[in-house]
């Protein structure tokens, strides 16, 4: 087993910013492990613009935003990056086990930062009845298919939930020649940013049905149609308000859940409602020396804010290791 000063799990916006800030604060021995073959995390599939407005005063795409951090990380002698490395175990005394091609590694860290991001809520987490045909995708998965793999998921789509990923995908699928027939949102207002409603839906004439829900998905092998109904203030369907939309694809964009299996394994306290760490201070956990930052701590709207708070995590880890001083950011 090797020993390291600081191990960071996750090479997305959170892990990259945390690594750089920890290095600047004086940590000299940082291992950054990333399961993909590239750094950048989810930014790589977010090919739309809207990143970096606060931080760089420029409107960047996700890959461009990631690139600025990756270039700096690659030049930092104190940061070693291990790609295609998947963390499978973390103990309370900070031993991390990870798999990489052909090997299983164990490393004992004096401090750990978990920057593991979040995962999507799925169809199973919202009550939609009906059959289980092919063609139902979480919106972020569809984004990965189109933007990274070059696969078009279908011809005619309905999007459930008006989260930002769903709105961005409505535009993206339209540009790729699909017909997006509707976005269905159970709440009175959209969950996504207003600018995304304007530039992703209104620009392309895609109808947004607020206070509606999908009652049923029908299809034998492939999705054939969805049944939509208007809801009252208790989200119950209003009788005789229903209508059908024929489609072969349904995207689910109903929120994100922080990914904290490693932290749970280590024995830290997790908030059962949010799946984030139970903590009085941003980036801290119930175990000293184990920090969590970015979407794994709480789901952010903007990558710029992930970078900002993750830098604070890097400085907190440095302070824990006896270097520099961390800022005292409290949960807002």
């Amino acid at each position: 087993m090797t020993e390291r000063e600081l191990v960071i799990v996750g090479g997305g916006p959170a892990g990259l910013a945390a690594a750089l800030a920890a290095g600047e604060a004086g940590v000299k021995d940082i291992l950054l492990i990333e399961r993909d073959q590239h750094l950048g995390g989810i930014l790589n599939q977010c090919i739309h613009t809207g990143f970096g407005l606060h931080r760089f005063k420029a409107e960047l795409t996700g890959p461009e935003y990631a690139d600025r951090f990756v270039k700096t990380v690659e030049k930092a002698p104190e940061i070693e990056v291990s790609l295609r490395s998947f963390a499978v175990k973390l103990t309370g005394d900070r031993v991390i086990t990870y798999l990489k091609p052909g090997a299983m590694e164990e490393v004992k860290a004096r401090a750990v930062i978990l920057a593991t991001g979040c995962r999507e809520r799925t169809r199973e987490m919202i009550p939609i009845c009906g059959s289980r045909p092919a063609g139902v995708y979480p919106a972020g998965l569809a984004q990965k298919m189109i933007n990274l793999e070059g696969w078009i998921p279908g011809k005619e789509a309905v999007i459930v939930g008006s989260g930002d990923i769903g709105l961005i995908m409505a535009r993206r699928m339209t540009l790729e020649g699909m017909k997006v027939k509707a976005v269905i949102e159970i709440q009175k207002t959209t969950r996504g940013l207003t600018r995304n409603v304007v530039q992703c839906l209104e620009d392309y004439g895609i109808p947004l049905h607020l206070r509606h829900k999908i009652l049923k998905i029908t299809g034998r092998d492939r999705v054939e149609k969805v049944e939509v109904v208007r809801v009252d203030d208790n989200f119950a369907g209003i009788p005789r308000s229903g209508f059908e939309i024929r489609c072969d694809t349904v995207l689910i964009s109903v929120g994100l859940i922080p990914e904290n299996e490693l932290l749970e394994m280590a024995g830290a306290q997790i908030d059962p409602k949010t799946n984030g760490p139970l903590s009085a201070r941003v980036n801290f956990t119930s175990i000293p020396g184990i920090f969590v930052c970015g979407n794994a701590f709480r789901v952010y709207d903007l990558a710029d804010n992930v970078s900002l708070d993750s830098e604070s995590a890097g400085r907190s880890a440095a302070e824990y290791l006896g270097k520099g001083s961390a800022d005292r950011g409290n949960l807002s």
Partner: peptide, 10 residues
Amino acid sequence: MICIECPQGC
């Protein structure tokens, strides 16, 4: 109108 220059959405 809603400004779409940044996520503020004025």
